[in-house]
């Protein structure tokens, strides 16, 4: 993960929108991916990504450099996404919304679609570390800090997540072979 220069963060902390915009450019892709995989829906990921950056801007003065900037930003994005998940659970099941909304297709390959679906079907507690490690390239320690769980738990959860996705893919490939 490419960290921003400390002076860029320092300027953004002082409220400089130009510096903040360069942080947006650097991190919007990863923040969007995190939101997309936690929510399973691109329109919701758009909204939550925007919300996460606005919150980051509002609370940037509280960022003291205790952790990497990316870890701090992803924690905010994660919280925004989880808030959204909770809000939707209260209203109706997230899956209903996913079906109801037109979906932009960010994934072209067939394997990609299968992987995405397999990831989306994982329980949230397994999906989160998998996305943060495999998609955002975070270390186990960073994920542990963001999620507030021990490093050993991160290790076992990411393993279980990969194991589950691997099984789903293997089953689908086998089913596909049977059909053909």
């Amino acid at each position: 993960m490419h960290e921003p220069h400390p002076q860029v963060v320092a300027k953004a902390r002082r409220g400089d929108p130009v510096a903040f915009e360069s942080l947006v450019h650097s991190f919007q892709g990863d923040v969007w991916r995190l939101c997309f995989h936690l929510l399973g829906n691109s329109a919701m990921a758009d909204d939550v990504t925007q919300d996460a950056f606005v919150r980051a801007f509002r609370f940037l003065h509280r960022y003291r450099g205790d952790s990497k900037f990316s870890t701090w930003l992803f924690s905010i994005a994660r919280n925004c996404a989880l808030d959204e998940v909770r809000r939707n659970q209260r209203r109706r099941k997230v899956t209903d919304i996913i079906e109801a909304q037109p979906e932009r297709a960010p994934v072209r390959t067939e394997l990609g679609i299968e992987v995405r679906e397999a990831v989306t079907s994982l329980p949230l507690q397994l999906r989160e570390p998998l996305v943060m490690i495999d998609i955002l390239g975070q270390s186990y320690a960073e994920v542990a800090e963001t999620m507030g769980i021990p490093v050993g738990t991160v290790k076992s959860r990411v393993h279980r997540a990969r194991d589950t996705v691997a099984r789903v893919l293997t089953d689908e490939i086998q089913e596909g072979n049977h059909e053909s």
């Binding site: 969007w32 758009d46 932009r104 960010p106 390959t109 990609g112 495999d134 998609i135």
Partner: peptide
Amino acid sequence: LRVQSAESVPDL
């Protein structure tokens, strides 16, 4: 997953 992460994302 890593290949997928290289897919384009919207410019927001």
